[in-house]
């Protein structure tokens, strides 16, 4: 399997603060890559680069080997990079189907002249998708406002699956969910990967991360300090890297990095 996404040497500063200090990352189709790190480690800044919100000061991002020159989140979405945000990009007053198809509604023409939205097709496709996700989302609900947090995640993920996103960024998708619903979201993430997307999963709960991820990348102070497969690591190891403790142990061999840190 090839790399769907390659991040090479990305640097970004906000004024005097160096938020990203040369990040390298690869993502393959069909895998879930978890991104972990303490608050302020640079996870959000990194994914905002991938989602087209920020542009790097230097370095590059390649999608399917092609260099990305993203100007906006909409451009990223057109190329197949979907983000499932914490605060969910759903329009509350629209139905499940209308949300999945929002911005890309199929239309037909009445008598060959008057265009109208093909709600029949939307209903059909939505029912199929929800069945596939096995999500217990009431597909006929008039609006998504009454759905639970997990059900809303399912709608957002159904959207990514239907539009065959190449890269899906899930930004702390379980942060506000009940325990039962967390399991569903993990299931959806696996389903997404099975559909051929590369999934970047950001989270804080390490038990959950070890459960959902194929690979795990640990960020610390604007750089990826450790990459491992989920089967070969443990919570203790991850925490060591997340807190920089591991770095300190190795500090004797890397004095220049130690000096750099003191300046931050």
């Amino acid at each position: 399997m090839g790399n769907v996404l390659e991040v090479k040497g990305i640097r970004k500063s906000f004024g005097p603060v160096e938020a990203l200090r040369g990040v390298d990352l690869t993502l393959q189709s069909g895998e879930v890559l978890a991104l972990v790190g303490d608050n302020g480690a640079g996870k959000s800044t990194l994914i905002k680069h991938i989602a087209g919100v920020y542009r790097p000061d230097s370095g590059e991002i390649r999608l399917d080997g092609r260099k990305l020159d993203l100007l906006s989140p909409a451009a990223a979405r057109d190329l197949g990079i979907e983000t499932v945000f914490q605060d969910l990009a759903l329009a509350d007053d629209l139905s499940v189907g209308a949300n999945i198809f929002l911005g890309r509604e199929p239309t037909r023409r009445w008598l060959g002249i008057l265009p109208y939205i093909d709600n029949g097709l939307i209903r059909e496709e939505t029912a199929g998708l929800l069945k596939r996700l096995n999500s217990h989302v009431p597909g006929k609900a008039k609006s998504v406002a009454r759905l639970s947090g997990g059900q809303r995640q399912a709608v957002a993920i159904a959207r990514a699956i239907y539009w065959k996103a190449k890269v899906v960024i899930m930004d702390e998708p379980t942060a506000a969910l009940a325990v039962m619903e967390r399991q569903n979201v993990i299931k959806y993430a696996r389903e997404l990967a099975a559909s051929g997307a590369g999934v970047i999963y950001i989270g804080h709960n390490l038990v959950e991360i070890l459960d959902v991820a194929d690979r795990i990348a640990v960020m610390f102070r604007g750089a990826i300090v450790h990459t491992t497969t989920a089967g070969e690591t443990s919570q203790e190891t991850l925490i060591k890297y997340m807190t920089g403790y591991h770095d300190k142990q190795a500090g004797a061999q890397r004095p220049e990095q130690e000096r750099e840190k003191r300046h931050v």
Binding site: P73, L88, A91, D92, A98, L102, G103
Partner: peptide, 16 residues
Amino acid sequence: LYALGSNSEATRRLGI
């Protein structure tokens, strides 16, 4: 129109 009134930020993010 309904999407915009419902969630303007989401509508913008979707490129509408």
